[in-house]
Write a protein that binds this DNA or RNA. Structure first.
Length: 488
RNA sequence: GGCGGCAUAGCCAAGUGGCUAAGGCAGUGGUCUGCAAAACCAUUAUUCCCCAGUUCGACUCUGGGUGCCGCCUCCA
């Protein structure tokens, strides 16, 4: 079985082939650091986190690089607004980004290079492009000459004539062609600058990714990823820069993920309809967000609603509930007793990993993979529920094995790694602290109700029960007495 | 205007040229209970936006239509 991936470059799913056997060089476009990250950025990091974990799980080594673009017009503007330097501003938001990543439970990339730490590489690359006739200097700016790059538009399925017809490009008389894009910008007074053969200035957007990917991954590497909005112009321009300079293919596989939407509109800063990661995590645990994100395929739009998040939370509770059930199983079973698991359920438990991998192999279909997880949970619950008083050792072993597999596969999605009992307890305590009843008061009410029950005063008993239930306290009458728990 | 994507049950969301169209949430019935709750079981799309075509057979392929979204300016 091989992993197949949808490649934007060809518009098809293709079996993954790597330059080096069992090794994958992956470059993902990171953020421009001038503000806190929102849910859309979170999806991006979550998707590639899942992809990297899965690629490694399937026996590959992965060199995962995600850059920071820490010099750019927006950063300069924002720093000026805040009366600070671009360096201070970008470092502050890089730190915030790292905090967000830790909160989300994302693995660290192997390297997180910054544009400003690669100015010499950027200058070299631009010089190569000038030497090859693909770029030209104009009053201290350097532009890429798109007409000289034959494949310009190949990734995004455009051609220069169509784009010109679109005519939404700001006309600049410095450019030979309106589609030419800037590689190096001469700096205005007060802006951060670096020396270059074309005078003091700073890199344009796009060139930093070409320079850094080349430095760390070489002229040609396996996978390059980012959001769909980066296909054009960012990735198109990277190709023009990198292939123009090296004369070699830049990237074999392009992975682009879909957007997070709100009310079916793209979440973006300019629309103002965004939620920052930190705001969101105040309301929902990271695992809930992960489950929500992975419940849709990475290339489809993902519409954010509170209802969807609550659904995800209920789903996560169900998964942990199943794992908690498994911890309560008797330690020892009857070695001689027959296995009580039916053939169909047995298959579900045994084939979980296989089904999960088959789904993930198919362009990282985490939604389908999660479906298999839930399907298995249902089987586990059923078996556990119907266990005889003295269960067979074989059955217990099966259930425990399934629990271990669930946890192992959950790790590929960054979920289910907490102790299940602790997870549920913590959740109950959190809810309990938010209501105006102490455990002592609850116990007292239960005692009162039990007295009423003994006297067959059902009205009074029900009244107390409903009162507790209205505060999210569920009570359970069992043979050994009444227990209570917080409804989650 | 150019290019691309999507349309599957109340909601979310997979999927396949032909076995029962995953799974989650919500709902309904049942087991249990004095009644409940929890848990579990069962059940909820004769049908996959509309029309035409290809085919023995299409929700899946082709063409057309409708609706929604995205990129073409910064964007994950």
């Amino acid at each position: 079985m091989t992993i197949s991936i949808y490649n934007t470059k060809t518009g098809k799913k293709e079996p993954l082939s790597t330059i080096k056997e069992k090794h994958i060089n992956l470059y993902v476009c990171g953020i421009t650091v001038y503000d806190y990250c929102h849910l859309g950025h979170a999806r991006s990091t979550l998707v590639f986190d899942m992809i990297v974990r899965y690629l490694r799980y399937r026996g590959n080594t992965v060199t995962f690089i995600r850059n920071f673009t820490d010099i750019d017009d927006k950063i300069i503007k924002r720093a000026a607004e805040q009366g600070t330097t671009t360096e201070e501003l970008s470092n502050r938001f890089i730190e915030a980004f790292h905090e967000d990543m830790a909160s989300l439970g994302n693995l660290k990339p192997d390297l997180e290079p910054k544009a400003t730490e690669h100015i010499p590489e950027i200058v070299d690359l631009i010089q190569t492009l000038i030497d090859r006739g693909l770029a030209y200097e104009q009053d201290g700016d350097v532009y890429y000459r798109v007409e000289r790059f034959a494949n310009y538009g190949a990734l995004s399925g455009r051609n220069l004539a169509d784009m010109m017809a679109g005519a939404r490009i700001a006309v600049s008389d410095k450019k030979e062609n309106p589609m030419d894009f800037v590689l190096w910008k001469s700096s205005k007074p007060g802006e951060p600058t670096w020396d270059s053969p074309w005078g003091a200035g700073r890199p344009g957007w796009h060139i930093e990714c070409s320079a850094m990917s080349k430095k760390y991954l070489g002229d040609t590497f396996d996978i390059h990823g980012g959001g769909k909005d980066l296909i054009f112009p960012h990735h198109e321009n990277e190709i023009a820069q990198s292939e123009g300079a090296s004369g070699k293919p830049f990237v074999n596989t392009w992975i682009h993920h879909g957007f997070v939407t709100i009310k079916d509109e793209k979440m973006s800063k300019s629309l103002g309809n965004f939620l920052t990661i930190r705001e969101l995590l105040e309301q929902y645990p990271a695992e809930v967000l992960r489950l929500f994100v992975f419940s849709a395929h990475y290339r489809t739009p993902l519409d954010f609603t509170d209802q969807a998040m609550q659904d995800a939370e209920t789903g996560l509770d169900r998964l942990y509930g199943c794992l908690a059930t498994l911890t309560r199983l008797p330690r020892q079973g009857d070695a001689d007793a027959a296995d009580t698991v039916g053939k169909k359920d047995r298959q579900k438990l045994e084939k979980l990993e296989e089904r999960f991998c088959k789904a993930m192999d198919n362009d990282f279909n985490s939604a389908q993979a999660l479906g298999h997880i839930f399907d298995t949970v249902k089987a586990v619950n059923k078996i556990a529920q119907h266990l005889p008083p003295t269960p067979s050792q074989q059955t217990l072993d099966r259930l425990r094995q399934a629990g271990a597999t669930l946890k192992q596969l959950g790790d590929l999605l960054g979920i289910l790694q907490q102790d299940p009992v602790a997870y549920l307890t913590a959740k109950q305590e959190k809810i309990l602290s938010a209501i105006d009843l102490s455990p002592q008061q609850i116990e007292a009410l239960i005692a009162e109700r039990n007295k009423a029950r003994d006297e067959k005063d059902w009205t009074r008993a029900d009244e107390i029960r409903d009162r507790l239930l209205s505060r999210n306290i569920e009570i359970k009458d069992a043979a050994g007495g009444t227990t209570w728990q917080v409804k989650i």
